[in-house]
Design a protein around this nucleic acid. Structure first.
Length: 105
DNA sequence: GCCATGACGGAGC
DNA sequence: TGCTCCGCCATGG
């Protein structure tokens, strides 16, 4: 089983209306300090799976932009807003409010 | 099998 | 408060 597969398994557990950070997903997947791999993994699978990739954002509470995404980053924001996640003026979400807390169910 | 890459994170200035 | 730099390492060519 590849590291990517485990990452996807974790992402699928993120509840509707909540978000998780790359580092958090990496840790839960048993891959501490490999946040970059999480982002890379999602980049490679995004268009082909039902994984809620849009619920994964960076530690700052922002959507990670990349020229390779060609606008998918904006789509991500729309999908989150559709789930009730609110963004502030700086394009950030309040992690204290929306961050997924596995322990807390 | 070697090498560049990359949706990050966090320390340092 | 904000920008830069560096460590991390699986994947693909």
């Amino acid at each position: 089983m590849s590291a990517y597969h485990r990452i996807y398994a974790i992402v699928q557990q993120i509840p509707y209306g909540q978000v998780a950070t790359y580092g958090q997903v990496a840790e839960l997947a048993g891959l501490p300090r490999r946040a970059r791999l999480v982002g890379y993994a999602l980049f490679r699978v995004a268009p082909e799976t039902t994984v809620p990739w849009h619920r994964v954002i960076n530690a700052k509470g922002e959507i990670s932009m990349s020229p390779f995404r060609e606008g998918n980053d904006y789509l991500q924001r729309s999908l989150l807003e559709a789930e009730g996640v609110q963004f502030n003026q700086n394009g950030k979400v309040n992690l204290r409010q929306y961050l997924w807390q596995p322990n807390h169910r």
